Amino acid sequence: MTTSTNSPAQQPLPVDATSAALSARGVSKSYGRGDTAVRALHEISLDFERARFTAIMGPSGSGKSTLMHCLAGLDNIDAGRLWIGGTEITDLPDAELTRLRRERVGFVFQAFNLVPTLTAKQNITLPVTLAGTAVDEGWLQEISSSLGLLDRLSHRPHELSGGQQQRVAVARALLTRPDVIFGDEPTGNLDSATGAEVLSLLRRSCREMGRSIVMVTHDPVAAAYADRVVLLKDGALVGELERSSPEAILQALAKLGS
């Protein structure tokens, strides 16, 4: 990531970076150059508390997916500073950033991203296997039991329902006990009942396992499972909601489009 040109006085460090799962200060990101440049993010400053579920919402093109990718260290930023836990990732070398993501960040995607030739257990443990570290079998059993997967661990993805496949993805994200789990439209390919089940599991991972969840979604019903909803428009932070109903979230989104 490129070094910010802003001075420390302009972009203060979080009061206690170790108390937050994620922190952003003055984060800006553009695509393209000159007259064709598109501003994706403009001076975003946010803290994401530990063990809280946050949804990121906004109209199409508001920058919500770009923000998630930058927070996770998947995309470079043009200016500002970023932390995961107490570790600043703004200029972290690629090898160290890859290791940090593997050990302290989990991902749950819309398309599940399971390897079809592997069993559910092998898919869950794949990141640990690739890292060459030992699987904590006790923790794996605890997660699998909590997510209702104990009798499905030997099954391959085509033998599982969509909801079960997404549970496997959630278990994979939880296995390394990450600081934060990012969800990119995690219920986008699920029916409403199965989606509600997965969202409940994510919320439980906050309350019972102490994980922090950051989810990008366009669905007010999904966002209502979150403790907090962050609203973006044209790449800028324009508001927040706390523990809101789908109706209140939909109304806030409608105001952004007006």
Score class of each variant (00 low, 15 high):
residue 43 E to Q: 10
residue 176 T to P: 04
residue 251 Q to E: 14
residue 252 A to L: 05
residue 59 P to G: 09
residue 238 V to P: 03
residue 151 D to W: 12
residue 88 E to T: 10
residue 54 T to S: 07
residue 22 L to K: 00
residue 67 L to P: 12
residue 114 L to I: 10
residue 236 A to F: 02
residue 229 V to I: 00
residue 7 S to T: 14
residue 246 P to C: 04
residue 225 Y to G: 02
residue 220 P to Y: 08
residue 251 Q to N: 11
residue 14 P to M: 07
residue 165 Q to K: 10
residue 97 L to G: 07
residue 229 V to L: 03
residue 198 V to Q: 04
residue 53 F to K: 03
residue 185 E to G: 08
residue 83 W to T: 02
residue 118 L to M: 15
residue 196 A to G: 11
residue 47 D to A: 01
residue 238 V to H: 06
residue 129 T to G: 00
residue 199 L to D: 00
residue 257 G to T: 11
residue 184 D to V: 08
residue 12 P to Y: 10
residue 49 E to K: 12
residue 177 R to N: 09
residue 86 G to K: 15
residue 156 R to E: 14
residue 186 P to F: 13
residue 37 A to M: 11
residue 212 S to C: 02
residue 197 E to K: 00
residue 120 A to N: 02
residue 215 M to N: 01
residue 137 E to P: 11
residue 147 L to T: 03
residue 52 R to V: 10
residue 37 A to L: 11
residue 2 T to H: 12
residue 251 Q to W: 08
residue 251 Q to A: 13
residue 210 G to H: 13
residue 144 S to G: 09
residue 223 A to I: 01
residue 111 A to I: 07
residue 28 S to P: 08
residue 17 A to V: 05
residue 230 V to I: 06
residue 204 R to H: 14
residue 116 P to D: 15
residue 199 L to Y: 05
residue 232 L to K: 00
residue 97 L to Q: 05
residue 257 G to R: 14
residue 44 I to F: 05
residue 178 P to I: 05
residue 104 R to V: 01
residue 112 F to V: 08
residue 26 G to V: 02
residue 86 G to H: 14
